[in-house]
């Protein structure tokens, strides 16, 4: 848990036609940190995740990962470098089995080399054991041969989380992982996110479920209309009048 910066966004900007979805956002995530990113609907949170993953080109600004500029890299290269994500609306490979969903996601640079070797040369032995461990950790071991599309909602969320970890990321982007979960599942999610951090994964957490964000995040950044309006600890953000305005629409003259 050093102070090294894993992710830096400099003046990140994305316009869709006339809409300024993300407008000059500066944000830094330190190694081993859990950064919460909150904001009202349509404030640009998911767009930021998509920009960090490289799903669309930037209008302006830069994305640095571990100090290197990755703004122009295609999505799969960013995964190989160590950035993975989950989706707000779950996107599993429904016709593949649970096990295969993790198998195809083993795309870190190191895993790629291993996966090139055939099984009888011991190439993917470690990778296979890793998948089994991951399924146990997410309590999906008994479902390994089921089609992902047949899983219950909570299981699908867990599988997507597991799939994002399959490529051994350094930075994990969670886009509303608690959406649609019950209290017990959210508690499990909370402990899994903490466990991930212990294993050295840095987390950028987008979430509407404030209890979860306030509990798990070290720091919170708040977006509104594509701009960062506040940043700080949970209590600082909670008592910030500008944030209250954005969420509640009251005027305090800020």
């Amino acid at each position: 848990m050093g102070n090294a910066k894993v992710l830096e966004l400099h003046g990140l900007t994305k316009h869709f036609g006339g809409v300024r979805a993300v407008d000059g956002v500066d944000l830094t995530v330190a190694s081993g940190e859990i950064l919460g990113l909150i904001g009202p609907n349509g404030s640009g949170k998911s767009t930021i995740v998509n920009l960090i993953c490289g799903l669309f080109p930037l209008t302006a600004g830069r994305v640095l990962f571990g100090g290197a500029d990755i703004s122009e890299l295609p999505p799969h290269t960013r995964v190989a470098l160590g950035i993975t994500r989950t989706f707000q609306n779950i996107r599993l490979f429904g016709q593949l089995t649970v096990w295969q969903n993790l198998w195809v996601a083993q795309n870190s640079g190191e895993q790629r080399k291993q996966n090139f070797l055939p099984r009888w040369l011991g190439g993917s032995k470690g990778a296979r054991a890793e998948i089994d461990r991951m399924l146990e950790f997410f309590d999906l071991g008994h479902k390994r041969d089921e089609l992902a599309g047949n899983l219950a909602f909570g299981e699908q969320r867990r599988l997507e989380f597991a799939r994002a970890l399959a490529a051994r990321p350094a930075l994990l982007l969670l886009d509303e992982p608690a959406a649609g979960m019950n209290a017990e599942e959210i508690e499990q999610l909370d402990s899994r996110i903490r466990k991930m951090r212990q294993n050295g994964v840095t987390v950028l957490l987008i979430e509407h479920h404030m209890e979860l964000v306030m509990s798990v995040a070290d720091r919170i950044a708040v977006l509104n209309f594509g701009q960062k309006i506040a940043e700080g600890t949970a209590s600082a953000v909670q008592s910030n009048p500008v944030v209250r305005d954005a969420y509640l629409g009251t005027t305090t003259g800020a």
């Binding site: 993953c53 799903l55 295609p74 999505p75 799969h76 995964v79 190989a80 993975t84 994500r85 989706f87 996107r91 599993l92 490979f93 429904g94 016709q95 593949l96 295969q100 198998w103 195809v104 996601a105 795309n107 870190s108 996966n115 993917s124 799939r163 994002a164 399959a166 490529a167």
Partner: peptide, 24 residues
Amino acid sequence: SRVGAVLRAVGEDELAAQSTGINI
């Protein structure tokens, strides 16, 4: 083999495939 699973993953959801590190 894994190749088959990757082909099917791309066939099912290109966006998800890209985001899991597959060069579609």
